[in-house]
Amino acid sequence: MVWKTEKVNMPFEVKDCTLITRMGGVQAAVSLRELREGVARCPLECLFHHFCETQLRPTFDDPEFSNDFAVWAAKHVRDRILAERLGVINPYEFDNLEQLREVVLEVVDDRLSEVGHHQFAPAGEDFRFMRAVTVVFDVGIQLRTPDDLVTRLPQFSTSSVYYHFVEARRRTETRLDDFSNWLAGFGAGTEPLLDALHGIDFYYLTLRELKDALLEAVCQPFMETAHG
């Protein structure tokens, strides 16, 4: 199979990442008011962790919301209205994490004005502000053509998928995933593949589901091209 691409591109260096969580150094929150104070004061790394790195953490749970603030509001404060408002925030829509912080504070402030300062979590269910230490390392695999992506993707770890497809959006100027940035360099021939990648709404998927969605997206145009 040879892709009908117009250009030769730089090789894609496959990387992987691992994470270990650490305490965020901010007082735990028992009430909605304390959560607000914590969000206002916490390091930006805490916001990044609670919104963006939740998929990388080991868990025994499969929560209904993608960020930890929404999960806490629903599960421990039992305020589903707040949980849904927090849950719909997409951290990848903001230019920087300070903007994300402002939006979270707005949501919490609005809720405080509606319900007063009487929203508490039970004892032992307070919100702990966390952050992470993430180590990025080279896997030792280079992709040279889009075909390589098709053949090599099954060997990617889920954390490698996270690094290249999710985390990339905060790292790259285009705010796109690494695969899209790289494939764009091959010119018009990769458009079907790029369209398929752009169609994946990663924010609501577990990393296993995301990898499956990527495999499907990558293989489908390949099959169509092969048969076309």
Binding site: R22, E45, F48, R131, A132, V133, T134, V135, V136, F137, D138
Partner: peptide, 9 residues
């Protein structure tokens, strides 16, 4: 030094 993001190797 337990930085948030580290590039190893």
């Amino acid at each position: 030094g337990l930085e948030s993001h580290l590039l190893a190797g």
